Lab assay of single mutants.
Amino acid sequence: FKEKSRGVLREWYAHNPYPSPREKRELAEATGLTTTQVSNWFKNRRQRDR
């Protein structure tokens, strides 16, 4: 994950830790990652924050 991608994901996570499938697609396009990578990032981040 590039620093820029992580920044976008972290910013989004601060507002909404549970993005919808459509939001995940938009995030994937914005970061250049796949929707699966975006989903996993959020899942792992939520797990880490428990």
Rank of each mutant, 00 (worst) to 15 (best):
Phe1Ser: 13
Phe1Leu: 07
Phe1Gln: 01
Phe1Cys: 07
Phe1Trp: 03
Phe1Arg: 00
Phe1Thr: 09
Lys2Ala: 07
Lys2His: 14
Lys2Gly: 10
Lys2Asn: 15
Lys2Glu: 12
Glu3Arg: 03
Glu3Cys: 06
Glu3Thr: 06
Glu3Trp: 02
Glu3His: 07
Lys4Tyr: 14
Lys4Asp: 13
Lys4Asn: 14
Ser5Thr: 15
Ser5Tyr: 09
Ser5Glu: 13
Ser5Trp: 08
Ser5Val: 13
Arg6Val: 15
Arg6Ile: 15
Arg6Gly: 10
Gly7Thr: 13
Gly7Arg: 11
Gly7Ser: 14
Gly7His: 12
Gly7Asn: 14
Val8Tyr: 11
Val8Trp: 04
Leu9Ile: 02
Leu9Asp: 00
Leu9Val: 02
Leu9Lys: 00
Leu9Arg: 00
Arg10Pro: 06
Arg10Ile: 13
Arg10Gly: 11
Arg10Trp: 12
Arg10Gln: 14
Arg10Leu: 14
Arg10Met: 12
Glu11Tyr: 03
Glu11Met: 04
Tyr13His: 01
Tyr13Cys: 04
Tyr13Lys: 00
Ala14Asp: 13
Ala14Ile: 09
His15Gly: 12
His15Met: 11
His15Glu: 14
His15Trp: 14
Asn16Lys: 00
Asn16Val: 01
Asn16Trp: 00
Asn16Asp: 06
Asn16Gln: 07
Pro17Ser: 07
Pro17Thr: 05
Pro17Cys: 05
Pro17Tyr: 06
Tyr18Val: 10
Tyr18Arg: 11
Tyr18Gly: 04
Tyr18Phe: 11
Tyr18Lys: 09
Pro19Cys: 01
Pro19Lys: 01
Pro19Arg: 01
Ser20Trp: 01
Ser20Lys: 07
Ser20Glu: 11
Ser20Asn: 14
Ser20His: 02
Ser20Leu: 09
Ser20Cys: 15
Pro21Asn: 05
Pro21Asp: 09
Pro21Gln: 14
Pro21His: 02
Pro21Gly: 07
Pro21Glu: 14
Pro21Ala: 11
Arg22Gln: 11
Arg22Thr: 15
Arg22Ala: 14
Glu23Leu: 02
Glu23Val: 04
Glu23Gln: 07
Glu23Ile: 00
Lys24Cys: 14
Lys24Asp: 06
Lys24Val: 14
Lys24Arg: 12
Lys24Gly: 10
Lys24Tyr: 13
Arg25Asn: 15
Arg25Asp: 13
Arg25Pro: 04
Arg25Gly: 15
Arg25Tyr: 14
Arg25Glu: 15
Arg25Trp: 12
Glu26Lys: 03
Glu26Phe: 02
Glu26Asn: 01
Glu26Tyr: 05
Leu27Lys: 00
Leu27Ser: 01
Leu27Gln: 00
Leu27Val: 09
Leu27Arg: 01
Leu27Glu: 03
Ala28Ile: 03
Ala28Arg: 02
Ala28Ser: 11
Glu29Ile: 09
Glu29Arg: 04
Glu29Asp: 14
Glu29Gly: 05
Glu29Phe: 05
Glu29Lys: 04
Ala30Trp: 06
Ala30Gln: 11
Ala30Arg: 11
Ala30Asn: 13
Ala30Val: 11
Ala30Cys: 11
Thr31Val: 08
Thr31Met: 05
Gly32Val: 04
Gly32Gln: 09
Gly32Pro: 02
Gly32Ile: 00
Gly32Trp: 02
Gly32Glu: 13
Gly32Ala: 08
Gly32His: 09
Leu33Gln: 04
Leu33Ser: 05
Leu33Ile: 06
Thr34Phe: 01
Thr34Ile: 04
Thr34His: 06
Thr34Asp: 05
Thr34Cys: 08
Thr34Met: 06
Thr34Arg: 05
Thr34Tyr: 04
Thr34Gly: 08
Thr35Trp: 14
Thr35Cys: 13
Thr35Leu: 09
Thr35Ala: 13
Thr36Val: 08
Thr36Lys: 15
Thr36Glu: 13
Gln37Pro: 03
Gln37His: 10
Gln37Thr: 08
Gln37Ser: 07
Gln37Ile: 07
Gln37Asp: 06
Gln37Val: 07
Val38Asn: 00
Val38Leu: 03
Val38Trp: 02
Val38Glu: 04
Val38Gly: 04
Val38Lys: 00
Ser39Arg: 11
Ser39Asn: 08
Ser39Ile: 03
Ser39His: 13
Ser39Ala: 10
Asn40Ile: 12
Asn40Asp: 11
Asn40Pro: 00
Asn40Lys: 15
Asn40Thr: 10
Asn40Arg: 13
Trp41His: 03
Phe42Ser: 02
Phe42Pro: 03
Phe42Cys: 00
Phe42Thr: 03
Phe42His: 01
Phe42Ile: 02
Phe42Lys: 02
Lys43Thr: 10
Lys43Gly: 07
Asn44Met: 06
Asn44Ala: 05
Asn44Tyr: 04
Asn44Asp: 11
Asn44Ser: 08
Asn44Trp: 02
Arg45Cys: 14
Arg45Asp: 04
Arg46Asn: 10
Arg46Phe: 03
Arg46Cys: 05
Arg46Gly: 03
Arg46Ser: 06
Arg46Met: 06
Arg46Lys: 06
Gln47Pro: 10
Gln47Val: 09
Gln47His: 10
Arg48Ser: 11
Arg48Cys: 14
Arg48Pro: 04
Arg48Leu: 10
Arg48Phe: 14
Arg48Met: 08
Arg48Val: 10
Asp49Gln: 12
Asp49Glu: 11
Asp49Arg: 03
Arg50Val: 05
Arg50Lys: 15
Arg50Tyr: 10
Arg50Glu: 11
